[in-house]
Amino acid sequence: MVGSALKRLMAEYKQLSLNPPEGIVAGPVNEENFFEWEALILGPEGTPFESGVFRTSLHFPTDYPMSPPKMKFISDIFHPNIYPDGRVCISILHSPGDDPMGYETSAERWSPVQSIEKILLSVMSMLAEPNPESGANVDASKMWRDDREQFNKRAEVLVRQSLGLPEQL
């Protein structure tokens, strides 16, 4: 099982290197352990997170692609669908069995047909369009709904932080 997971991860790594999607760089943290990946996601244009480069970690189970990987933001992020500790709440990362929010259809869930690229693109579109219904971060949900200006300001700070720039220029 570990062998096939490794082979599939290798195939996906190759695919992502040769044909990288827009705004995404992903690969294993080190060549010794293919089950720990790091991915950089560019904040989509025209959103509060524009130009930010967010560092995320992906942890793959040994029975990948049967089970989905676990994804976590390493960079600080303030977003309605990301838990304060960085865990991402997105349907593609849930196996069809578990449904913590009870609203997802199984078509949007994880299956071996999905891929790392699809996960990262989903996360990117999630950054662009937060889903306030599944509030992983209640404060962020509230702010995003009620005080967008404040939310945008907060996002701006995070973008600078992610780029290694001082908070005030």
Binding site: P20, P21, E22, G23, L42, P44, E45, I90, S91, I92, A107, E108, V113, Q114, K118, L121, S122, M124, S125, A128
Partner: peptide, 15 residues
């Protein structure tokens, strides 16, 4: 079969 939730974000600049 692509998942319906993965609406791809298109950025203009070429990679």
């Amino acid at each position: 079969i692509s998942s319906p939730s993965t609406s791809q974000v298109v950025t203009k600049q070429p990679s």
